[in-house]
Amino acid sequence: MGAAVRAGDVRLWVEQRGSGPEVLLVNGGGDPLEAWQAQLDGLSDRYRLIAFDNRDVGRSTRPDLAYTVADLADDAAGVLLECGAGPAHVVGYSGGGVIAQELALRHPDTVRSLVLVGTWGRPDVRWHHVVGSWLWMAERAPSERAFLEAFFAWAYTHRAHEDGRVDRTIEAALAFPYPQSSESFQRFADAFWDHATLDRLPRIAVPTLVLTGSADPIAPPDYGRAVAEAVPGARFELIEGQAHAPFEEVPEEFNRRLDAFWREVPDLPR
């Protein structure tokens, strides 16, 4: 069961699962916390997992005003504070990886380690073209289903489209009672449009793993490699044959990589 917590001027919907070392899961785009279901189910026997809906997503506050990635990072810090957690292993996916980077820069005492999945450190011209195409699709698609079909063509492998996974994901999204509006999607994209962390990443001082699908068309391997090269001591790993959502498509392998990485992170001083 989830519950709303107060983080600054917003209320964020949070679910906690399991016990052990604390893990904060940070979504990207318009995903609600349910996107992490395979991690909530697969890692909660060893870890205390905390997942939440970002502002403007799911059951969290839908503000009318613009916000920034710094605001989203402050929200994540607020979730940890309200849950009595941290420093935590932080996993950020896609835009959530950018939020996680900013969290480590703005609130370093809250972060024990970072896993950054399908992410980037600076938007480039290609990134703007990709996200810009999503924005006009969100405005002009003839239906929500049509938008999701077009959007998920970027996110998942050919295999996932052929074996029915994408169709099931679309049906779940259409049945979700708290859909993201096109206005919310625009505000979320605006927050990331010119936000860059790459030049500041050398300030991050926690163990960091950057994971990228070798066939990710949204955040290609060069994006993740640049992030790993900028963070002192960071490790870069490809997940062969995977696109933008390996945590959903190959959750067993994904969870195994996270668990192996976290076992290498030094214990907290007592």
Rank of each mutant, 00 (worst) to 15 (best):
A4K: 14
A4C: 09
R6H: 06
A7W: 04
D9A: 14
V10A: 04
L12G: 02
L12E: 03
Q16W: 02
Q16T: 13
S19Q: 10
S19P: 01
E22Q: 15
L25Q: 12
V26Y: 01
N27Q: 11
N27E: 09
L33A: 06
Q37I: 03
Q37T: 10
D41K: 07
D45F: 06
R48M: 11
L49Y: 10
I50P: 03
I50G: 04
F52P: 06
F52T: 04
D53N: 11
Y67A: 03
T68A: 01
A70L: 02
A73H: 06
A76E: 08
A76C: 11
V79P: 05
V79Q: 04
L80S: 12
L81C: 05
C83L: 02
C83R: 04
G84Q: 02
A85V: 01
P87R: 06
A88V: 10
V90Q: 07
G92S: 00
S94L: 04
S94R: 01
G95P: 01
G95I: 00
V98W: 00
I99C: 02
P108C: 09
P108G: 06
R112K: 15
W120Y: 10
W120P: 02
H128P: 02
V130T: 14
W134Q: 03
A138L: 08
S143K: 04
S143R: 03
A146G: 11
F147E: 12
E149A: 15
T157D: 06
H158I: 07
R159H: 10
E162F: 00
D167G: 05
E171Y: 01
S181L: 05
S182L: 02
Q186K: 11
D190N: 13
D194N: 08
H195I: 07
D199K: 09
R200T: 00
P202L: 14
I204H: 00
V206Y: 05
V206T: 13
P207A: 08
T208Y: 00
L209T: 00
V210N: 15
T212K: 09
T212C: 15
S214C: 04
D216Y: 06
I218F: 04
Y223I: 04
R225H: 13
A226Q: 10
A228D: 07
A228K: 14
V231M: 13
R235Y: 02
E237F: 11
E237R: 15
I239M: 15
A243R: 10
H244W: 04
H244A: 11
N255S: 14
L258N: 05
D259H: 10
R263G: 11
E264M: 03
V265L: 11
